[in-house]
Write a protein that binds this DNA or RNA. Structure first.
Length: 723
DNA sequence: GAGCACTGC
């Protein structure tokens, strides 16, 4: 079977190239067999004599399934000659020669073995996906290649024709191209830009269903909401079709937040008697492959997470896909036989308006973790601001990361890493959370803080209610859950975990309480891993309280991680350009001080709320973001004050923003150039004299876009007034 | 009444 793969025809060429060069780029289209074969080819050429071959994958499932396949092709037991290593699971042994691992795992290994001495070859697979981890690895491997580690060979594999870019990054290394095994896909463009792409997509699906021959349909949308909406439309209209006029249809949703049992339905063999219409998010673009798809409908949009170093916040925005993504989507129609791809945009738009490639993740993310990682590697002669990235992030983004790290005591003013920073880098957590753990260790409440950190690391704890009518039922379920004693979300998370633990970690407990079993199990694994790491690091000297948790100490510890970040924001908004010390912050902002050192150990959101209640006006100056359950009362209180014209009630403005987003989704870009209706109102309100003294407002997150809008606007105002 | 793409340590 392996002989049929295109890559095997190039065996001797690949071996020659890798022997002659330190770095080789291999471009292999889908179906070329590069992921399973290149490791075996290099193994046969005895590269494993001097060390293991590592192949990185962006995803866990891929690392596991590919390792399994290679082991069976080589007729060895998994975990012996061929193994894999992912978080929570290391299936390698002394015998292992070929090791598949996630890119994040290899990055972790670099922390303890900075020259990767145990490997002879590193293969960075799927480099075109440009995950944050892959990009950091690319930069680090460039430093290792050649001079520093003369025996280490590096192979970069990618699916797009972006070989020249990789090659010039690695000082002109050779590029080899291997053909793929995709069937031709006919691409059809819209003649005009649809006003509503969901409606247009549903129409197209119906036309295919009633007019085309057999073959499943894959429709890309941006999120769960849209998917549910489209499915309802499709179901309604297919029901209206005349009985027997066409084949039956099964409509299936596919997105990451779907219960695994429902996700599996998409991978069951396609029934011959009816057509499947799969309505999916981007998950079907790379992560999951659905067999049997012959028709792809591509509205050309995707929901993207992007970080703004100016506001220090992430937003989810709907953006146009790139031409690379469009090609990838089309390719999904040609895996089993020739297919068709319907693009719901014009050819002119494809040529002229779509970006050639997707903005790499490294330019859309907070770099705090990545920079801390680089700092902890102790690379001499390296200034992070000048670190060589394939696509360098903006200077603002790097400076933001450095400032955040300084604020949480991870680096000094000269940029060197502190001993605290070194310990934080080893923890697989967002640095501010690592900082909170170390503070908790100091305050003898590590046990509880570990639980909170683990609970914060798993997404969507609560079971989603599918129907609106069940919301009452959901409320009942929530009544059985701890409420955090009015001390905030973090304490509530701790209490939930504690109750589950006391109950013996049972799945039934989760089901009874409306909590996702999978998330709780995940939290348990993370907690175990964190506690192992932090105790190795502190050489087993961590202290535990024998009695119940000291909640005040615990919340204070969390503040050291989180509220410093808050103070940092305020500092920046007050126009401090240089890195300040904490005593300066105290002068800038009394609340920043009280948040950090207050004996009550109050959480920031509580501080905000308290100030509102006690003083009747926000004492907090300038913009800041507050996380937690107190944001709702705080927001209400604030809107009952003089700020009540801030775009009406929260839900109204939210709806308005949504509506506007719908209308302008194809063209509107995020940012300040085109303020939304909400933004305009906020700007107007902020211009009205509210309080004496500097014009300033404190705000709370968890109210989503609304607050982001405000922060963006006030940012804009601030810079105006500076001029 | 939040949460809302996808990964990963």
């Amino acid at each position: 079977m392996a002989d049929e793969l295109p890559v095997t025809r190039f065996e001797s060429e690949i071996v020659d190239l890798v022997k002659k060069h330190d770095v080789v780029v291999i471009i292999g289209e889908t179906g070329s067999g590069k992921t399973t074969q290149i490791s075996q080819i290099l193994h046969r050429a005895h590269f494993t004599a001097s060390g293991m071959i590592a192949i990185t994958q962006p995803r866990r499932v891929a690392a596991v399934s590919v390792a399994r396949r290679v082991a069976s092709e080589m007729n060895v037991r998994l975990g012996e000659e061929v193994g894999y290593s992912i978080r929570f699971e290391d299936r390698t042994s002394d015998k292992t020669q070929i090791k598949y691992l996630t890119d994040g795992c290899l990055l972790r290994e670099l922390l303890s073995d900075s020259e990767l001495k145990q490997y002879s070859v590193i293969i960075l697979d799927e480099a075109h996906e440009r995950s944050l981890n892959t990009d950091v690895l690319l930069g680090l491997l460039k430093r290792l290649a050649g001079r520093k580690c003369p025996d280490l060979k590096i192979v970069i594999t990618s699916a797009t024709l972006d070989g020249e870019k990789f090659s010039s990054f690695f000082s002109g290394c050779p590029v080899m191209k291997i053909p793929g095994k995709l069937f031709p896909v006919e691409v059809l463009y819209s003649t005009e830009q649809p006003i509503n792409y969901i409606e247009s997509a549903v129409q197209t699906a119906l036309e295919i269903h009633t007019q085309e021959g057999p073959g499943d349909i894959l429709l890309f949308l941006t999120g769960k909401d849209e998917i549910d909406k489209a499915i309802k439309k499709l179901e309604d209209r297919i029901r209206l079709l005349e009985e027997g006029s066409c084949m039956d249809a099964v409509i299936l949703p596919l997105h990451a937040s779907l219960e695994p049992e429902l996700q599996v339905r998409v991978f069951a063999p396609s029934p011959t008697t009816c057509r499947r219409i799969i309505v999916a998010t981007n998950i079907a673009e790379t992560s999951l492959t659905v067999d049997g798809v012959v028709f792809v409908i591509d509205p050309g949009v995707v929901k993207q997470h992007q970080y703004s170093p100016a506001t220090g916040m992430y937003s989810l925005v709907v953006v146009q896909i790139s031409r690379v993504q469009a090609t990838q989507r089309a390719g999904r129609a040609g895996r089993t036989r020739p297919g068709k791809c319907y693009r719901l945009y014009t050819e002119t738009m494809f040529e002229n308006e779509l970006a050639a490639v997707t903005v790499p993740e490294i330019q859309r993310s907070s770099l705090t973790s990545a920079v801390l990682h680089l700092k902890s590697l102790d690379l001499k002669e390296v200034n992070v601001l000048e670190f060589e990235f394939l696509d360098p992030p903006s200077r603002a983004s790097l400076e933001d990361a450095l400032q955040q790290l300084f604020i949480i005591d991870a680096i000094r003013e000269d940029g060197s890493i502190t001993s605290l920073g070194k310990r934080m880098a080893v923890l697989p957590l967002e640095p501010s959370l690592s900082r909170a753990l170390l503070a908790a260790e100091e305050a003898s409440c590590l046990n509880e803080a570990l639980t909170i950190a683990a609970m914060l690391s798993c997404e969507s704890l609560f079971v989603a209610n599918s129907k609106k009518s069940s919301s009452n039922k959901r409320d009942l379920e929530f009544k059985n859950l701890p409420d955090g004693k009015g001390l905030g979300d973090h304490i509530q998370l701790l209490q939930i975990y504690e109750e589950w633990r006391e109950d013996g970690f049972r799945a039934e407990w989760c089901e009874q309480h409306g909590v996702k079993t999978r998330s709780m199990m995940f939290a348990r694994d993370i907690r175990k891993q964190l506690s192992q790491i932090i105790q190795w690091e502190s050489k087993g000297s961590s202290r535990y309280k024998q009695k119940g948790p000291d909640l005040v100490a615990l919340r204070k510890s969390l503040c050291i991680g989180f509220s410093n970040r808050l103070a940092h924001r305020m500092q920046r908004h007050n126009g401090y350009r240089t890195l300040g010390t904490k005593s300066q912050l105290v002068q800038v902002h009394p609340s920043a001080c009280s948040m950090e050192v207050d004996d009550d150990g109050l959480l920031p959101e509580w501080v905000v709320y308290n100030e509102l209640v006690n003083t009747g006006r926000p004492y907090i100056r300038n913009v800041c973001a507050v996380e937690g359950s107190w944001c709702q009362p705080a927001l209400k209180k604030l809107s009952s004050l003089s700020v009540n014209k801030l775009g009406g009630t929260q839900s109204n403005s939210g709806q308005r923003a949504k509506q506007e987003e719908k209308e302008t989704v194809q063209t509107e870009k995020a940012g300040l150039e085109k303020p939304s209706a909400v933004q305009k109102e906020v700007v107007a309100a902020a211009r009205r004299p509210l309080f004496e003294g500097p014009k300033n407002i404190a705000f709370c997150t968890k109210a989503g876009d609304y607050v982001k809008d405000m922060v963006c606007c006030l940012q804009g105002l601030q810079s105006l007034s500076v001029e």
